[in-house]
Design a binder for these strands. Structure first.
Lengths: 196, 196
DNA sequence: GTCTATATTACGATAGAC
DNA sequence: GTCTATCGTAATATAGAC
């Protein structure tokens, strides 16, 4: 668990170490002792950079949420037919998830035990609702199946997207857009070769 | 399966209380004090029924794993075209997940911090691998898309299925087969009305 | 079977030297 | 900025009465 020590830490560089440990052991399963060993500095040195464990969590989930909400403001999410906007948001959500993998991973595992965690859950709900509205509009325009509730479809869609954090591990030169294509294709066209 | 509250606890009735608290607070975020208050007995009384916190986790994930692996032995998973077997296993997995919701929920959240958790993760991998083999066979028979890797397809499929534990809450008279239909339909035929 | 009381360790966080 | 030392609390688990 102990890693090589760096020159000096900033809140940001310390955060990257902490998030990695949080994701390996779980937030509640990670002690300040675990963090200090992973960072190569003492427990008290960590408190020089951040107020405590929960601030590290807050910084991490904030970064993830900022990335996700920014997608909703991009032109591709605001213009065109609803179905195209849904596909765009889905694809970009995958890309943000992969680009900010450790931070989004931590966000998706928050349980709600502290105020910070409950705030994160609330913001996630806002994001999901925005996408659910898009799905509903796409169904109303006749481009998406109307026999499945939009809320259910959104949940299944993001269940699939979010599950990427459970197994995807980046490698040098990884092509995120290709994986995003596969996810969008499966979500909108399904696994089967021909519809029955 | 009896759910009636008894005068005194057995390991099984205590387990149902513990699993509920584990799922609300997370396993690591749950103390024996939390469990004792939820069960209405003292901490030391819990130790009369089980050896400790980890035994409760082991019993819970074992129950979930037994339910999932049993699906693979059912006739529908062993006979017929591969694509039909995949659909059958998917549908039955959803049904087992919903029938044993608290136990499967806990299983899907283990991180691997203890030996019990690592054993659970290993068994989950075995299950996923069995389904990936089925998917590969279905693609080889031409019934499933061949342009998506079978392991990737399996991961996305079960990402969607497993995400049910994040939001589904049972209610009296709930129709699990209907939800299972919706999941299978979305996974195999997609969200779109017409393929492009 | 359940309780109170307690042993023992681990945890988050702080104090103060350098 | 980092350290050692430590505080106060909360954790898992046990002892022994009833």
């Amino acid at each position: 668990m102990t890693t090589a020590r760096r020159d000096t830490y900033t809140p940001e560089t310390l955060l990257s170490v902490a998030v990695q440990v949080f994701n390996e052991r779980g937030y509640d399963g990670t002690s300040m002792e675990h963090l200090s060993k992973a960072a190569g500095i003492s427990k008290s040195s960590i408190y020089h950079h951040v107020a405590g464990k929960e601030e590290l969590l807050r910084r991490a989930v904030s970064r993830a949420l900022d990335g996700l909400f920014a997608v909703l403001e991009e032109p591709g999410a605001l213009r065109g037919r609803a179905v195209e906007r849904v596909e765009y948001v889905t694809r970009r959500t995958v890309e943000v998830l992969l680009a900010e993998l450790p931070y989004v991973t931590l966000l998706l595992r928050v349980r709600g035990n502290t105020r910070t965690e409950r705030w994160a859950l609330e913001r996630r709900r806002e994001f999901d609702h925005a996408v659910a509205d898009l799905l509903k509009a796409a169904a109303a325009e006749g481009d998406l199946r109307a026999d499945v509730d939009s809320r259910l479809a959104t949940r299944l869609l993001f269940g699939m997207v979010n599950s990427l954090v459970e197994w995807y591990r980046p490698y040098p030169g990884a092509d995120h857009s290709q994986l995003a294509d596969a996810v969008v294709h499966m979500a909108f066209d399904g696994l089967r070769t021909s519809t029955t």
